[in-house]
Nucleic acid binder design. Structure first.
Lengths: 196, 196
DNA sequence: GTCTATAAGTCGATAGAC
DNA sequence: GTCTATCGACTTATAGAC
């Protein structure tokens, strides 16, 4: 980590922004270079191919999510509190890496083997850990008895699209975003009875 | 409606499936034709361009959502019941048009003017109607006091990604899907106190 | 209505001068 | 490390034979 040159970081950043706006296939090496005042050919002194840019961006995000998950697992809190921490993790990573996050929702399909399998394996492992926390919560009576796959999917799809919402509400603070999205995903929309 | 020839419907269907799997930009006219045992040039006897295929698919879905929304608005139920009906609408349209639905999450960005503005206008109008129902629910004390944009975004992102979940669980019945996703989005994951 | 042939452009990536 | 020039493959779309 951190041994990337300045130029390479600039290229990854330029690419991520364009991938987000246009998508991987609709973004050309010429566009990525043009944003940095370069010609397309110059990019190849710093990166091996367009494909490798996508791999670095996506596997980098995968690693960050797995690191965050490990911290949550080691926290020894109860499952509902762990769910709370996980939502915080997604919010934090979304605000820190908004462009890279957007690749998770769509452009990962353009990965080629073996990176594609590598990415899917990482994602499956993450989702399994997430699911385990939900199941623990049900067993302890903290979480409603809901179809587990549906609960997982429902949370993750909201969290994955948080970046597009944040792009339209840049004035909102991270802490406010975190509080409100937790209300939606954990407590639900329907009004709860006042406490007895 | 319904005045499309059989061939044209086949082309739209073939295109939708490929757009879903590969994305609009990564799908070529040759692939669309090949799935029907045709050469690419033959497609142009039935459709004007690749761009027009995307427009027909996306604006067609937009119309179906607006029709459904109108029925819900006219139903004279309370806001929480209307929310329930809207989730049912999304589930129904997802199961009926899984490929077309997938375009809503990503490939709409490849629409060109004036279709792009037309699509955005349709989507904004739909989201505004959706939001109005949530606000009514809050005013009537049926829905928790949550950031409205966040609540809207949270529900819609889960509903928009329902198709990808359904692709992995084709054995589940529509009625079961509807019941479980309503639990997630309306009641929330956190266990509620038993009724007094 | 489908075909072959092709126009006109863009793509990712490389070679080699400087 | 950046450039110009270029290759070969691929793209959407059209023209015209059948």
């Amino acid at each position: 980590m951190g041994k990337n040159s300045v130029r390479k970081e600039q290229i990854l950043e330029s690419a991520a922004k364009l991938f987000r706006k246009k998508g991987f296939k609709a973004t050309s090496m010429r566009m990525i270079a043009s944003n940095l005042g370069l010609e397309a050919a110059s990019l190849y002194n710093h990166i091996h191919s367009k494909q490798k840019i996508l791999e670095e961006l996506l596997l980098g995000m995968g690693g960050r999510f797995m690191e965050g998950m490990k911290e949550v697992e080691d926290s020894k809190k109860n499952p509902l509190e762990k769910l709370d921490l996980l939502i915080g993790l997604h919010v934090k990573l979304t605000l820190s890496y908004p462009e890279q996050i957007s690749l998770i929702t769509g452009d990962w399909v353009h990965l080629e083997e073996p990176a594609l399998t590598q990415y899917k394996t990482l994602r499956n492992a993450y989702e399994l850990k997430f699911k385990t926390i939900i199941i623990d919560g049900m067993n302890e009576g903290l979480i409603e008895n809901i179809d587990i796959e549906m609960a997982l999917f429902s949370i993750l799809s909201s969290l994955h699209w948080l970046y597009s919402w944040y792009a339209r509400h840049p004035e909102m603070k991270g802490s406010d975003i975190e509080r409100e999205i937790k209300k939606c995903l954990i407590s639900g929309l329907k009004k709860r009875e006042e406490n007895p």
